[in-house]
């Protein structure tokens, strides 16, 4: 008898997928099934947390062309 599991399908490019897999590896509380290179099946209640974490991660790795005036980063 097959089972139906409720969740969210994420479709993304491989680069984004690898970031999500990395974020999940901390607590293993996001991904239910790793489907293929561009798809993940994740917990519905973790979507907001995932988006926040992803944004944070992108912010860390993304360098604007000009540094912001109020940036508190030390160079």
């Amino acid at each position: 008898m097959p089972r139906a599991v409720r969740g969210v399908l994420i479709t993304c490019e491989p680069a984004i997928k690898s970031i999500i897999v990395h974020l999940d590896s901390e607590n293993h509380d996001i991904i239910i099934e790793d489907l293929d290179e561009t798809h993940l099946f994740v917990k519905e209640n973790m979507i907001q947390v995932l988006k926040a974490k992803l944004e944070e991660h992108l912010k860390e790795t993304y360098r604007p062309e000009e540094p912001l005036q109020d940036s508190d980063k030390e160079y």
Partner: peptide
């Protein structure tokens, strides 16, 4: 950046 690179959809995964 994120919206262009990622889409989400709620639903059900059939397995087993």
């Amino acid at each position: 950046l994120e919206n262009e690179r990622m889409s989400t959809q709620a639903g059900f995964l059939f397995k087993d």
